[in-house]
Computed example of a mutant assay.
Amino acid sequence: MSDTPPNDPLHGMTLEKILLALVERFGWPELGRRIAIRCFNQDPSIKSSLVFLRRTPWARAQVEALYIEMKTRPSSTAGKDGRPRLFAPKQG
């Protein structure tokens, strides 16, 4: 058995942790824009989203893919805290 962590970016992550990380990073409006499902766009909550995602494999796959993309490809518009900047920094 090896002491190195597996290469799977979802290793040790629950669906709830993934969803919380995505909401923290993007917020509900942006998450709903990126993955157009009702539970992200109409009265969103972690609980209702988890119920839907656990019953809907295609939606869960999209959420997991967005999480992997977020982890492996940092945003070029992210600030020091990792959140997207709304405005580009002034030059000069």
Rank of each mutant, 00 (worst) to 15 (best):
S2N: 06
T4V: 02
D8T: 08
D8V: 07
P9I: 04
P9D: 04
P9F: 00
L10H: 12
L10S: 14
G12F: 01
M13H: 04
L15V: 06
L15G: 13
E16M: 10
E16P: 04
K17T: 14
K17A: 15
K17S: 14
K17W: 10
I18D: 10
L19R: 00
L19F: 08
L20Y: 01
L20I: 12
L22P: 09
V23K: 02
V23F: 08
E24D: 12
E24M: 06
E24G: 08
R25C: 13
F26C: 06
F26P: 01
W28D: 13
W28Y: 04
P29T: 05
E30R: 10
E30K: 14
L31Y: 05
L31G: 14
G32E: 05
G32L: 05
G32M: 05
G32D: 06
R33N: 15
R33K: 13
R34C: 13
I35W: 05
A36G: 09
I37F: 06
I37S: 15
C39E: 15
C39D: 12
F40H: 06
F40D: 13
F40I: 09
Q42F: 15
P44H: 01
S45Q: 02
I46Q: 08
S48A: 14
S48F: 09
S48N: 15
S49I: 03
L50D: 09
V51W: 00
V51C: 11
V51N: 12
L53Q: 06
L53T: 11
L53C: 06
R54S: 15
R54W: 01
T56C: 12
W58A: 14
Q62H: 11
V63I: 12
E64C: 14
E64W: 03
E64V: 08
A65H: 01
L66V: 02
L66F: 11
Y67E: 06
Y67F: 14
Y67R: 01
I68R: 03
I68T: 12
I68V: 15
I68H: 06
E69Q: 04
E69M: 11
E69T: 12
K71P: 10
K71Q: 14
T72C: 09
T72E: 13
T72K: 03
T72N: 09
T72D: 05
P74L: 02
S75D: 07
S75N: 03
S75F: 03
T77A: 13
T77G: 08
G79K: 00
K80D: 11
K80W: 02
D81Q: 04
D81W: 00
D81R: 01
G82N: 00
P84R: 02
F87Q: 09
A88V: 07
P89V: 10
P89E: 10
P89I: 04
P89Q: 04
Q91A: 15
Q91S: 09
Q91T: 15
Q91K: 11
G92D: 00
G92T: 03
